[in-house]
Design a protein around this nucleic acid. Structure first.
Length: 522
DNA sequence: ATAGGGGTATCA
DNA sequence: TGATACCCCTAT
């Protein structure tokens, strides 16, 4: 039987060694670790394995060999994942040990043993590839061995050319040189990445400045506009002026702190904290972002502009003409559909210039001859208890049944009221429905410090609206200058007016649509 | 009839 | 003044 030339075995040895090192290098950062590993990696197991394979190869006819290889004799016994995980674990352990510079003999032995096992496994994984080269370089022409493994080495190993001096180098030199190459490449890519990162950071910083400027100018604009609006629109409840003009958004915390701001669901009601107290309780777990080390702490939300469109002078006039005070006085006490037992209406001051209209909603009501808003009626404890019992009995969603069960207690309420109340109970008292025992207060998963109160539903919907509305008109040009098409050249008022017109048109369209519907019904 | 979006009166 | 409680509208 022909003995395999010595060179073949050396090559195989080098290959697997180099591969292991490439692998380790790829997953390791510190040079000291690599140095330490060098001492721990004799690979005797792999060597033995190789010798065993060599012998069995030498004693078998070629056809049989090929069959057995195809049949899976040399197929990798491991998935790469299986190899990777323990190696990574080992690596982190090594890093810890080396970081403390206390690798005692016993620890070293454990590590060495584990690495031997891994090396053996690595050999199994790499076997077919190595053998292919092995066959080609040693017994070329005599045997045709082609490993049919579908598995490829994750890190292809450069096979030293036979003319290359490195082929004759000692094992250590070979590996060392490979390290230098790889380390150099690593360093180069790292500095390249750092450069890219620096450029990006600079860009972001510039953008932040631009956005802050924009924010300030927009804020000023909003305030000015708001002053104008206030002069022309008198609200029924002056306390809600800011609310109706959307000025509350001006007081928002820096939104960019909010993780996942882009996520629309973030500020959904279900995600809101049940109370500030609860927030406070949770704040220790989730410190306020301002406590973090982030040097790019963000400015406030850049698009905090409320056009206050339906509260402009024009709108106010339109409202006055379409909704005369006398009409309203006449309508007090109107029974809406006759289905609901009305509670007494609120006194409305129609004298002078009090304009009782805060929103489109009210406009619609007036236009269609509906009544004014019901006065609020507080839910009594009894009612709430009845509602809870009803939900337990009939289940959530069967409001009519619940209402019919207690027509007296729920006098003046509709099934919709029950539904709304239950919604609030769920929302703010974390009430669950179903079994009796589940009617409890549960800790809310929303985690936020009290210093950061997310915008409420109204605020958020405004922000969303405004962001959408102004997305096209405000943008950052490629030259990092703010493109304030809407506000440039002191044409702000004009541009804004045109915005009003379009908004009014939309409102008109809606109204007309409604009219059409009504007439169609008739 | 119900669910869910949304406005606003009122509370703390 | 922000947050909640209550009420209203409308698609399904």
């Amino acid at each position: 039987m022909e003995r395999t030339p010595r060179g073949g075995k050396e090559l195989g040895f080098k290959l697997i060694h180099a591969w292991i090192w490439e692998y380790v290098l790829k997953h390791t950062v510190g040079v000291n670790i690599i140095q330490e590993l060098t001492k721990l990696l004799p690979f005797p197991t792999a060597l033995q394995y190789l010798e065993g394979l060599e012998n069995s190869l030498a004693s078998k006819p070629a056809e049989e060999l090929e069959v057995s290889m195809r049949g899976g004799l040399l197929q990798p016994a491991l998935e790469r994942k299986d190899l990777e995980r323990p190696l990574l674990e080992l690596k982190s352990e090594l890093r810890t040990l080396l970081g403390e510079k206390r690798v005692d003999a016993q620890q070293a032995k454990v590590i060495r043993d584990e690495f031997r096992t891994l090396a053996a496994k690595a050999w199994i994984l790499l076997g077919p590839l190595v053998l292919e080269e092995f066959a080609a370089s040693t017994i070329a022409g005599k045997r045709s061995l082609r490993a049919q493994s579908s598995v490829r080495s994750p890190h292809p190993v450069a096979i030293p050319d036979s003319e290359d001096r490195s082929f004759h180098d000692t094992q250590e030199t070979f590996v060392d040189r490979r390290f230098e190459q790889l380390e150099g490449a690593l360093r180069a890519s790292q500095s390249e990445l750092q450069n890219i990162l620096d450029v990006k950071i600079a860009e972001v910083k510039r953008s932040v400045v631009v956005l802050e400027d924009a924010h300030h100018s927009l804020k000023k604009l909003v305030k000015d506009q708001a002053e104008v609006c206030k002069q022309h629109v008198r609200l029924k409840n002056p306390g809600t002026t800011s609310q109706c003009l959307g000025l509350s958004v001006l007081n928002l915390p820096p939104l960019a702190h909010a993780l996942g701001l882009e996520d629309d669901n973030m500020y959904e009601d279900k995600d809101r904290p049940s109370s500030n107290a609860h927030c406070f309780q949770l704040s220790s777990e989730y410190p306020h972002p301002s406590n973090s080390q982030d040097p790019y702490s963000s400015p406030s939300h850049p698009l905090l502009l409320d056009p206050g469109l339906h509260n402009t002078k024009e709108t106010a006039r339109a409202l006055e003409s379409s909704w005369s005070p006398s009409k309203i006085t006449g309508r007090v006490g109107f029974m809406h559909g006759g289905q609901r037992e009305k509670r007494p209406f609120q006194e409305i001051d129609l004298c002078g210039e009090v304009l009782i209209c805060n929103s489109e909603q009210t406009v619609r009501e007036c236009k269609h001859g509906s009544t004014q808003r019901q006065t609020q009626k507080k839910w009594s404890n009894e009612e709430v208890e009845l509602l809870k019992r009803g939900v337990q009995e009939h289940g959530k969603g069967h409001w009519k049944k619940i209402l019919n069960d207690n027509t007296d207690a729920f006098r003046g309420r509709t099934e919709v009221d029950l539904k709304d109340k239950w919604r609030n109970l769920e929302k703010y008292e974390r009430l669950q429905y179903g079994t009796t025992s589940s009617l409890t207060i549960e800790p809310h998963p929303y985690l936020r410090s009290p210093a950061f109160n997310p915008p409420n539903r109204t605020q958020y919907s405004r922000i969303r609206f405004l962001t959408q509305q102004h997305r096209d008109s405000i943008s950052i040009s490629p030259h990092n200058t703010l493109d304030l098409r809407l506000f440039n050249n002191r044409n702000g008022s004009q541009s804004l007016d045109s915005g009003v017109t379009s908004k009014e048109n939309k409102t008109k369209e809606r109204k007309e649509k409604k009219k059409e519907k009504k007439t169609n019904k008739r």
